[in-house]
Amino acid sequence: MIIKNWLLDKIAEESGLEKDTINCDEPIENFELDSLSSISIAFDIEKEFNLDEINPTVFQEFNTINKLAQWIQNQI
């Protein structure tokens, strides 16, 4: 839950959307983040959760906030 909330905050900040309008089962690509912001979020995830270099393609594979939160949970 902490991870999910952190991700929600991050994606709200990056996309400029209100947090309560973001659906955690919606594909992240719908939030119109460009490649630079995806990479920057990946960079923040690495730092926040102390992970090794993240392959930016995780956003394609784990393409919703819920899936991504679960993926991060499994890494730490």
Binding site: L36, S37, I39, S40, A42, F43, D44, P56
Partner: peptide, 12 residues
């Protein structure tokens, strides 16, 4: 050199 690299986040 990094300024022209691929996959550079805003923090860098």
């Amino acid at each position: 050199a990094k300024s022209q690299e691929l996959y550079i986040p805003k923090q860098v």
